Deep mutational scan, measured.
Amino acid sequence: DIEITTNGEEDAKRVIKELQKRNLEYHIEVHGNQWVIKVR
């Protein structure tokens, strides 16, 4: 598993777009303004 910590929603959406392009499965956890994306 890979864990990507982003700085808020805009940053997270940019990362998610890339993950979707590669058809990767991911899970999002929001901790305040930090979005942690866990990639399987």
Rank of each mutant, 00 (worst) to 15 (best):
D1M: 14
D1N: 12
D1F: 15
D1Y: 15
I2H: 08
I2W: 15
I2M: 12
I2K: 05
I2N: 05
E3N: 07
E3Q: 11
E3T: 15
E3H: 11
E3R: 10
I4G: 01
I4A: 01
I4M: 03
I4Q: 01
I4P: 01
I4F: 09
I4N: 01
I4H: 02
I4Y: 10
I4W: 08
T5R: 15
T5N: 06
T5I: 15
T5A: 07
T5E: 06
T5F: 14
T6Q: 02
T6S: 05
T6Y: 05
T6R: 05
T6L: 14
T6A: 14
N7H: 11
N7T: 11
N7G: 06
N7S: 10
N7I: 12
N7D: 12
G8F: 08
G8Y: 07
G8T: 15
G8N: 15
G8S: 15
G8R: 11
E9H: 07
E9P: 12
E9S: 06
E9I: 13
E9R: 09
E9G: 06
E9M: 08
E9T: 04
E9L: 11
E9Q: 07
E10D: 11
E10C: 05
E10T: 07
D11R: 07
D11W: 11
D11K: 06
A12I: 04
A12Q: 02
A12T: 06
A12R: 03
A12D: 00
A12G: 04
A12H: 03
A12W: 04
K13P: 01
K13C: 05
K13R: 13
R14L: 12
R14C: 11
R14E: 09
V15F: 07
V15W: 11
V15T: 03
V15K: 03
V15Q: 02
V15E: 02
V15A: 04
I16G: 03
I16S: 02
I16A: 05
I16N: 01
I16H: 01
I16D: 00
I16F: 03
K17T: 10
K17H: 10
K17Q: 12
K17A: 14
K17R: 13
K17M: 12
K17V: 11
E18W: 15
E18A: 10
L19C: 06
L19W: 01
L19R: 00
L19T: 01
L19H: 01
L19E: 00
L19S: 01
Q20G: 05
Q20S: 07
Q20C: 03
Q20P: 01
Q20W: 04
Q20D: 13
Q20H: 06
Q20K: 11
K21M: 12
K21A: 12
K21N: 11
K21Y: 08
K21S: 10
K21F: 10
K21T: 07
K21E: 13
K21D: 13
K21W: 07
R22A: 13
R22G: 06
R22W: 14
R22F: 13
R22H: 14
R22L: 15
R22T: 06
N23W: 04
N23I: 02
N23M: 08
N23R: 10
N23D: 07
L24R: 05
L24A: 06
L24M: 10
L24E: 04
L24K: 06
E25R: 12
E25D: 12
E25V: 12
E25I: 13
Y26K: 00
Y26F: 13
Y26I: 04
H27R: 12
H27M: 12
H27T: 15
H27D: 12
I28R: 00
I28K: 01
I28E: 01
I28T: 03
I28G: 00
I28W: 04
I28P: 00
I28L: 09
I28S: 02
I28H: 01
I28Y: 05
E29W: 05
E29S: 09
E29H: 06
E29T: 11
E29Q: 07
V30A: 04
V30M: 09
V30R: 11
V30Q: 09
V30L: 07
V30D: 02
V30P: 02
V30F: 08
V30N: 06
V30I: 14
H31T: 10
H31L: 10
H31G: 02
H31P: 01
H31F: 11
H31V: 14
H31E: 05
H31R: 15
H31D: 06
H31C: 12
G32P: 03
G32K: 04
G32T: 03
G32E: 08
G32V: 03
G32D: 07
G32N: 08
N33V: 07
N33H: 09
N33D: 13
N33S: 10
N33C: 04
N33Y: 08
N33L: 08
N33E: 11
N33I: 06
N33K: 07
Q34F: 13
Q34P: 01
Q34C: 14
Q34S: 10
Q34T: 14
Q34G: 04
Q34D: 05
W35C: 03
W35A: 02
W35Q: 02
W35I: 09
W35V: 06
W35G: 01
W35L: 05
V36D: 01
V36Y: 04
V36A: 02
V36C: 03
I37C: 02
I37H: 00
I37P: 00
I37R: 00
I37Y: 00
K38F: 13
K38Y: 14
K38G: 02
K38V: 14
K38E: 02
K38W: 10
V39L: 06
V39F: 08
V39G: 01
V39S: 02
V39M: 04
V39E: 00
R40K: 15
R40D: 06
R40N: 10
R40T: 14
R40V: 15
R40L: 14
